[in-house]
Every structure is written in C-alpha cells, then in structure tokens.
Amino acid sequence: MTGLAFLIPIALLMGLAGLAAFLWAMRNGQYEDLDGAANRILIDEDDGEDETGEGL
C-alpha cells in the first residue's frame, strides 16, 4: 500500500505535465497553422534568412 503514496503523486504530476504542455503549446501558437509545415518544405530559402516567424 505504501507504493500508492508514490504512484499516485507521480501519476498526477505526469498528467499535470501533459496538461501544462498542451496549454503552453496553445498559447505559443503551435495550433495556429496546421497545414503550413507541410507546404513550407516547398519554399526555397535561397538567402538563408532567419526563419523565426516574428511576423505572426
């Protein structure tokens, strides 16, 4: 039974970590452009300019 004292907090923490990662990803705009990445490979970056996407 003492195992529970470790396992339950671990399970909760992992769940919370997942939730935090999801909320962070949303706030960070990771879901804003789902089709872009697939198309972006077709764009030539000939002058090697920065790709930070600050324009968004």
Binding site: L34, D35, E49, G53, G55, L56
Partner: peptide, 16 residues
Amino acid sequence: ASARVNFSAKRVAIEH
C-alpha cells in the same frame, strides 16, 4: 525583412 504564410488562415504576414 521577412514574410511568412499561414496556410490554414490563408494569410501572409510581411515585416517591411
């Protein structure tokens, strides 16, 4: 300076 296209929203953001 830079341009980035958002294909889902069909918008382009241009820094100029």
